[in-house]
């Protein structure tokens, strides 16, 4: 989707980004001084206690809310331009499917809104349904699907315009542990296949470590980034990884970072 010149630019670059919500009870500083760069194709998780501004940061990147301060660029463009150009796809904790549309027509919605021709749309929807393993369910309605399947539809929809950036806000938060682990493996495969960068909000430490190239640790009041932990697991992420010593080491590192214990190991930085 994005022109060749911008693919070399970072998927997301935030410099000094802050967000203040004016409320009746006074101003709420949701985010302050956020410095973050997500490289093309990189998988970055945002983790932190509830209220630390994870969703807010994701909504700023998606241009669903404007930043109060600082600068934000998506593939070198302002967030609003990136939204109009469909440079990113997004999935929320609620699948947010339209109940009166079939799976196929939910997946194809972004294409329909951008006036992609019927034939091309049908082909692309079939491709996406295959990618998320829902080929047999394209004619069903959302209320006939399990929560995990609905979330897969939402992911397919987010990928419809072939974005090079995928934004996800606790997409597996409402699912049971089994479905969750399955979809995590699926997501690493999909991210590798599509070569999209991913910004993934979660409050699960194992989930963040399993999925990410880097885990961004955030802290509330005011919401800010307090630590960044690199995993160095490479592209091959299977269930064996979940039992490896490196994995447990990173889980511990993230936990310590979250709980404010000083991490002294230089290689974590």
């Amino acid at each position: 989707m994005s022109p060749a010149t911008t693919t070399s630019a970072a998927a997301v670059r935030a410099t000094g980004v802050g967000k203040v919500f004016p409320t009746k009870a006074g101003e709420v500083v949701a985010l302050t001084g956020v410095e973050l760069e997500v490289r093309a194709g990189e998988f970055v998780s945002l983790i932190g206690p509830s209220g630390c501004g994870k969703s807010t940061l994701l909504r700023l990147i998606a241009d669903l809310d404007p930043a109060s301060s600082g600068e934000l660029s998506i593939f070198g463009k302002p967030a609003a331009q990136a939204r109009v150009d469909q440079d990113y796809g997004i999935a929320f904790q609620q699948a947010g499917l339209l109940p009166w549309r079939t799976v196929a027509s939910n997946i194809g919605l972004p294409l329909e809104l951008h006036k992609v021709g019927r034939a091309e749309r049908t082909a692309r929807v079939a491709e996406l349904a295959e990618l998320v393993g829902l080929t047999e369910f394209v004619d069903r309605y959302p209320d006939q699907l399990s929560g995990g399947m609905q979330q897969r539809v939402a992911i397919a929809r987010a990928l419809a315009s072939r974005p090079k950036l995928l934004l996800m806000d606790e997409p597996f938060g409402a699912l049971d542990e089994m479905t969750r682990e399955y979809l995590q493996s699926e997501l690493t495969r999909i991210a590798a296949e599509t070569e999209a960068a991913v910004v993934f909000v979660t409050h699960s430490i194992p989930e963040a470590v399993f999925l990410s190239d880097r885990v961004v640790v955030m802290s509330p009041r005011p919401g800010r980034i307090t630590d960044v932990i690199t995993t160095d697991f490479g592209h091959d992420r299977d269930d064996a990884l979940r039992e490896s010593p490196e994995y447990f080491e990173r889980v511990t590192a993230v936990r310590e970072a979250l709980h404010g214990v000083k991490v002294e190991r230089a290689n974590e930085r």
């Binding site: 998606a62 241009d63 796809g89 997004i90 947010g96 809104l113």
Partner: peptide, 14 residues
């Protein structure tokens, strides 16, 4: 209309 649906249409630049 639900907020999640309105957000969806906004990110789709509808």
């Amino acid at each position: 209309t639900r907020p999640v649906h309105r957000d969806l249409l906004r990110v789709s630049a509808a």
